[in-house]
Design a protein around this nucleic acid. Structure first.
Length: 648
RNA sequence: GCCGUUGUAGCUCAGUGGUAGAGCACUUCCUUGGUAAGGAAGAGGUCGAGAGUUCAAUUCUCUCUAACGGCUCCA
């Protein structure tokens, strides 16, 4: 007999060789039906795998993350079985569970899989699932495994086997399909009740674009049809707040074929948001001791040779232009221009820290397939600044930048993000990274210490640094789940030297400043794209392109409405009158859909008493107020940059 | 850039080997209405671009272009 310890600390004895599924059955049949896998001594196991020794157990169901991912991984195998039966000879690379479902990368040889095939595959999968075939685990020797896939001519699985050592190799078989797989898997195919194959994509083998492209099929499955229906409905809802859809509906931005891909045209409404963001940045930076500068959009090639950008970034820049026998580039970054401003005058320690800020316009040649609404564009306006400081001041400056981020995030109510400390990869020194090993170690430690000192939660990511130093990126997700870097804070120990930037120290020596590159508000493009989704188009009043719409009950009250509108405009409130000969219900509906924060309804009563009826978008009628009282409130809401949740 | 999908009116979308429709938006007229759609009439499209097949192409084929879902890449 062996002792099994449950999460609540209770211990029960079972026969040696008992399975998690047996244990679940001993508790209740209902639980046994729900068990997908089990956490045994901290490892996720098949629920059908015999337990030989004393162990702790946690039964995993659909409600556990590991239960879900096991379910989806098993679904990937089920899909592979269906693919093999409809496309004999298909070879399989890997088929993991992902955040919302699973995929499998497949080499179909000369054949192609198209959208219509997905329905056939779904039908086949449902048929195979109904057979309720068990997933059978088998330990196998490396020799036998190599022979099995060698006979099959499957170079992909042979490649995987190459990295595995004897004794750690397992096969899983369900129905007629056998795969090299670490597992674990759910007990049997029967619990996969609802299946949706979502899309087909190409995917490079081992993620390297020089390798062959495999066909990737994405799918998602559920234990109940109802859950699939809910999932699909959720996707529909998410699409409604997609910034590309909202941006068009609200007249924020547009693209034009003749202007070019990835080159957004900011419409009047979007321009207002840009101006409000710049106002916020200027106020904040001015208080933080920043000085504003303006620099050209192009520069000579030699500038980028000095900065060291060209060898690393040439592919990401627009092609060079020849002029008067000199090569020019459109700028992809503002830093070299700012360095030249630093270098324009002799600097002493008394000038430091010198903080140069610019909403700089950059052009980056993003590959065509990477463009994505406002989130990935080729023309961008960066909330850029460079801080030149001594090593002693570095921690203080870096911390102040971090605090600026958090201040901004509070204003916008941004709480779903991850701070990512990006580090260098020592084996790539001299290629991807500046070859100064000791400086890398030193600055990475400094940055990490600042994060620890300020209690900022972060994750460390190797091989993601800028070529000139480590950085902190703030990662966010678009409404359809794509990940982006919203803001960035980078240390640069390289460019100061490359540009011969110097300052005179207190003891009359010269030293090279450290440089901090920072963009807390990222770029207008990505930030506004993000805000559109974050607010679902319902901008807080301070950002809303139109803040108030005055709605006369009928044309008779148009003069009074225009008088109100004029007063608002004089108080710098963005206001308009709906002067159409429509019924009030229609005017309200259109203004609600346009997501204008406030509506002022005016008719006979209001004109007689010299008041307005206030209506808040999404909330309805707030009652009658004097215009002065309303203006006082909205002015205060705007000047404090309040979000709707803080507005009473 | 690569794999897959799509491109019809300002927007959302029908449709056809014989040069096109709906709803909303727009214009005009009627209506002057109290908190989410009043009524009527009208205007609006080289069916993404180019080439090919055909008596005839928006429809079939090819190329290009742009967008979308991914891969790679990135603020």
């Amino acid at each position: 007999m062996i002792n099994i310890t449950f999460p609540d600390g209770k211990v029960r004895s079972y026969e040696k060789g008992v399975t998690a599924l047996d244990i679940a059955k001993s508790i209740s049949e209902g639980l046994a039906r729900k068990v997908l896998a089990a956490n045994i001594n901290g490892q996720v196991w098949d629920a059908t795998r015999p337990i030989q020794d004393d162990a702790t157990i946690k039964l995993l169901t659909w409600d556990d993350t590991e239960g879900k991912s096991t379910f989806w991984h098993s679904s990937a195998h089920l899909m592979a079985e269906a693919v093999e039966s409809l496309f004999p000879g298909a070879k399989f690379w890997v088929g993991p569970a992902v955040e919302n479902g699973f995929y499998y990368d497949i080499d179909l040889g000369d054949r192609q899989i198209v959208q219509e095939d997905l329905a056939k595959l779904e039908t086949k999968m449902a048929e195979l699932a109904k057979q309720n075939n068990p997933y059978v685990r088998k330990e196998i020797s490396k020799v036998d495994a190599l022979k099995y896939f060698g006979d099959k001519g499957d170079e992909y699985k042979l490649d995987l086997l190459g990295g595995l050592s004897d004794g750690s190799i397992t096969f899983y078989t369900q129905g007629g399909f056998t795969d090299l797989c670490r597992g674990p898997h759910i007990p049997a195919t029967g619990s996969i009740k609802a299946i949706k194959l979502t899309n087909i994509a190409g995917s490079y083998w081992k993620g390297d674009e020089k390798n062959k492209q495999l066909t990737r099929i994405y799918g998602v499955t559920f234990p109940q049809q109802k859950e699939l229906d809910e999932y699909l409905k959720m996707l529909e809802e998410a699409k409604k707040r997609d910034h590309r859809k909202l941006g068009k509906e609200l007249g924020i931005f547009t693209f034009d074929d003749q202007v070019g891909p990835g080159l957004p045209l900011w419409m009047p409404n979007g321009t207002i948001i840009i101006e409000e963001l710049e106002k916020l940045a200027k106020e904040t930076e001015s208080k933080g001791g920043y000085k504003r500068v303006v620099t050209p959009h192009i520069a000579k090639e030699s500038l980028y040779l000095t900065s060291g950008h060209l060898p690393y970034y040439a592919d990401g820049m627009f092609p060079p232009m020849e002029m008067d026998g000199t090569t020019y580039y459109l700028k992809a970054m503002n830093c070299p221009h700012h360095h030249k401003i630093f270098a324009a005058e002799p600097r002493s320690y008394k000038d430091l820290p010198l903080r140069l800020a610019e909403y700089g316009t950059c052009y980056r040649y993003e590959q065509s397939g990477e463009l994505f609404g406002l989130m990935r564009v080729r023309c961008l306006h960066m909330n850029d600044a460079h801080i030149y400081c001594s090593k002693e001041d570095f921690a203080k400056e870096f911390k102040a930048v971090n605090e600026m981020y958090l201040k901004y995030f509070k204003i916008f109510g941004i709480d779903r993000y991850v701070m990512r400390l990006s580090l260098h990869e020592p084996s790539k020194l001299g290629q991807k990274y500046i070859d100064s090993p000791e400086l890398w170690v030193e600055t990475e430690a400094m940055v990490r210490q600042v994060l620890i000192d300020t209690n900022t939660p972060f994750v460390e990511v190797p091989d993601e640094a800028a070529f000139y130093g480590p950085k902190i990126d703030v990662q966010i997700w678009s409404v359809i789940g794509r990940e982006f870097t919203l803001a960035t804070n980078q240390v640069d120990f390289a460019q100061g030297r490359r540009f011969n930037l110097e300052y005179t120290t207190k003891d009359n020596h010269t030293d090279v400043p450290l440089i901090i590159h920072r963009a807390p508000l990222g770029t207008h493009e990505r930030f506004i794209g993000f805000l559109l989704e974050h607010y679902a188009g319902k901008f807080p009043t301070w950002l809303a392109p139109l803040q108030v719409k005055v709605l006369p009950i009928s044309d008779k009250f148009l003069p009074y409405a225009q008088e109100i509108d004029q007063s608002l405009k004089l108080a710098d409130i963005r206001s308009e009158v709906d002067d159409r000969s429509e019924k009030i219900g229609k005017k309200i509906r259109d203004t609600e859909l346009a997501k204008v924060p406030y509506m002022l309804v005016v008719g006979e009563k209001e004109e007689a008493d010299n008041v307005v009826s206030v209506r808040r978008q999404g909330k309805g009628d707030l009652g009658i107020q004097s215009l002065e009282s309303f203006m006082g409130q909205i002015k205060s809401e705007i000047s404090q940059r309040l979000s709707e949740e803080n507005v009473s």
